[in-house]
Design a binder for these strands. Structure first.
Lengths: 158, 158
DNA sequence: AAATATTAGTACTGGATTGGTCCTATTTAT
DNA sequence: ATAAATAGGACCAATCCAGTACTAATATTT
């Protein structure tokens, strides 16, 4: 199926949490607590997002992470791309990868791009603000597979 | 990243080939030849598509597969769903799976559905006809990862 | 009627992807 | 100075998926 990677899933959840606390730093352990995700994984994900320029980080004591832009200005495509690289349903849709050596002859390529563009276009219209719950949830988020419960935190929530 | 499963990828390519030969049966080995995919994999995929009712199959000598409906009537969502099950970017978007036990309290669920609906909606507008090349290609199709070339067939084409 | 050709169904195996963890360095507030 | 937090990188493990093979069923052709 077309599915989001776990990390991309986490990213959106974490970003949504941060969007719920604008103008204040949040730390990785707190976000882990709030989302019910393991701390190391949260830390890793936040690093990726900061590296991509979607979050600003403050080191040291009283440090943490905060959104750089307003949630309305952040399409989910950007979050996904930050964690997983550009959205490409098939390799066909990736440009300038010298792998496709007969691309000039391949009529399917442009067709694959249609599908890819459809998905990206749809996703570009969804912003982080659309994903931010009105009331701040203290509800753990469950990713794609239920196998996550090694520590048995919280409960399964979708 | 959001990526199509290999099988879903194959399915669309195979269906597109069949769409290029309407009103005639095509056999698994022929389709494998034309697409450059391994025969057993093609056979497996065709079985899935037939089982889902997207293809009609004819057993025995001079048998083969053919589209049941016209290519214009087949949204790619249906092809993907036939092979991989319903499109669900996260488990959150799956309904009636008793896993999410606090769903009434979880405000994120409806937000995930927004993303899912955006993707499904976009994909529903793309039909198999959009994916069928005007000229019948004898060009092998390359799936997501280049690791396919065990037999070194043809070349990499996207 | 027999033989051949083709799909139906199923189970197994190997590998690649990725997610999760840990360790060390660096920075900042108290 | 110490503690608290992120930065960065390396590594391990497990899950998922694709590819294969084998047997059964069915239809055509001779």
């Amino acid at each position: 199926m077309i599915k989001l990677s776990r990390l991309a899933d986490y990213s959106i959840v974490l970003m949504a949490q941060l969007a719920g606390h604008p103008s204040s730093l949040m730390q990785a352990p707190d976000l882990a607590l709030v989302t019910g995700l393991p701390v190391p994984t949260v830390a890793k994900t936040l690093k990726l997002l900061a590296h991509a320029g979607l979050l600003e980080s403050q080191r040291g004591a009283k440090g943490g992470y905060a959104l750089v832009r307003a949630a309305e200005e952040i399409p989910v495509t950007e979050i996904i791309a930050a964690v997983d690289g550009p959205i490409a349903l098939t390799d066909c849709t990736i440009e300038d990868d010298g792998v496709c050596n007969i691309e000039a002859l391949c009529p399917t390529k442009t067709n694959w791009r249609k599908i890819n563009d459809a998905v990206v276009g749809a996703l570009r219209c969804v912003t982080l603000a659309d994903m931010t719950p009105q009331i701040a949830p203290i509800v753990p988020h469950r990713p794609f597979e239920p196998t996550l419960n090694h520590a048995g935190q919280g409960g399964d929530v979708g």
